[in-house]
Amino acid sequence: MDQLNPRQLTVLATMYYIGSAILVIPAYLADKAGNDAWISGLLGLMIGFLPLILIYALEKTYPGKHLGEILESALGKILGKVTGFAFFLTYPLGIITLSLRDIGDFLTTSLLRDTPLEVLILFTLVVISIAVRLGIGTISRTAELFFPWVLLLIILLIVFVSPKADIENIQPVLASGWQPVMLASLTLAGFPFLEHNLFMMVFAKVKGSASLALQLGKGSLVSGLLIVLVVFMCLLVLNPGQTAAYVFPTYELGKMIEFGQFVRRIEVIVAFIWFFTIFFRVSFLLYTMVTGLSYLLRLHDYRVITFPVAVISGALSLLWYPNITELNNFSRIWTYISFLWGFGLPLLLLGGSAVQKMFRSPKSPREPA
C-alpha cells in the first residue's frame, strides 16, 4: 500500500533535510559567519521551526487533505490551480535541479573525474524515477531501513576526526558581532528548513493520529543538530578559512580520518552518507512534483509523467547552471525564493481560509425590538 506512518514520515523528513546540506552548508555558513558558523547553524534551525506553526494550523483546518486539495479549497479552483502550477514548477523543480548539479559536481570532482556529467545525472534520474514510480510508501520504508546506517556513519565521522580538533579555530566568539551570524543563519533556514510545505503533499498518505507538523519538527531537530555538529567539526578541524574555501568541506573533513597507521583516507564514509540522503531528498522532491502536477492536470496516475518530468529536470540542471560558479551564485539567491514559498504559501492559504470562513459564517439574527 502507498502509505506511511508518522514514524516513517519523521525518518523521511530527517533524511530529506540532511540531503545535500550536510555536504555544502558548512562552506556557505563559514563564508558568511567565519568561526561563528556553528552559531548561525543553531539560529537557522530555530528559524526553520517557525513555518511549522503555520503548517500545523493548515493541518487542523484541512485534515486528511494534501497540498493540491488545500490550494483549491482555500483559494478556489482557478486561483488554486494557478498558484499550484507556480509552486510546483518553481519550488520543487528548482530544488531538484540544484540537487542534481550537487550530485554531478561532487562525483566529477571527487570520485568519477573522467565520467561525463550528463551520464551521471541521467543514471541518477533513472534510479530515482524507478523509486518514485514505486510510491511514497516504498520510499519511506527504504529510508527507515537506511537511516540507522546514516546515523552511524555520521557518528563515526565525528569520532574519527575529533582528535584533530582545535578549539582555537572557533575563537574569539562573536568577534564580528551578530550581523554576519544572523545573515548566515538565513542560509541554513532557507536550505533546507523552510521546505516543510512540500511534505503537505503526502499528509493524506500518513495513517495515524499524531500531529504531522510535530513529526516534521522532530525530523528538523534531529537533522539540524547533526548538520550543526558537522559544521562545528569542520571549523575545529579544517579551520573557518579552509571550510569556506572548499566546495565540499565535509568530504575534505573525511580525508582527515586516521586510525592508527593503517586506516587512512576513508572519506568514502562521507560519500555513503551523502549518497543515501541525497537519494531520498531528490526522490521525495520528484514524487511531490509529479503527484502535484498530476492532481492539477486531473491525471489518473502520476506515473505517466514521472520519466518526462525527470528528464526535463535533468536537462534544466545542465542548462541553468553551466558551471559550478553559476550554481553557487544561484544558491545564494535561492535563500530568498525559499523564504517566499516557505512562509508565503502557508500564509496565503491561511488567509484564503479565513476569508472563506468570513463570507460563509451565518448572519447573526436581529435583536428583538
Rank of each mutant, 00 (worst) to 15 (best):
D2S: 12
N5I: 06
G19L: 01
A27G: 10
A30P: 11
A33S: 09
I39C: 04
L45H: 07
L45F: 07
L45S: 08
I55Q: 04
H66V: 01
L71M: 12
L79Q: 03
T83N: 05
F85W: 10
P92H: 00
G94W: 00
L100N: 04
D102P: 05
S110V: 15
V126K: 10
V127P: 07
A131F: 07
V132E: 09
R133L: 11
T138I: 13
I139E: 00
R141I: 07
T142C: 11
E144L: 11
F147V: 06
F147D: 05
S162C: 03
N169C: 03
N169L: 04
V173Q: 12
A175P: 06
S176W: 11
G177L: 08
L183H: 13
P192D: 05
E195C: 00
N197S: 11
M201W: 04
S211C: 05
G219Q: 05
S223M: 02
G224D: 05
V230R: 02
V231Q: 04
T243Y: 06
Y246A: 11
Y246L: 10
F248V: 06
P249G: 07
Y251N: 11
L253E: 00
G260W: 09
I266R: 01
E267A: 12
V268C: 05
V268G: 09
V268H: 06
V270W: 11
V270S: 06
A271V: 13
F284I: 02
F284D: 03
Y287P: 03
G292N: 03
L318E: 05
Y321C: 12
P322N: 03
N323Y: 12
N323I: 12
T325S: 09
S331T: 10
I333M: 14
W334P: 05
S338P: 02
L340W: 04
W341Q: 01
L349C: 09
K357T: 08
R360C: 08
K363M: 12
P368H: 03
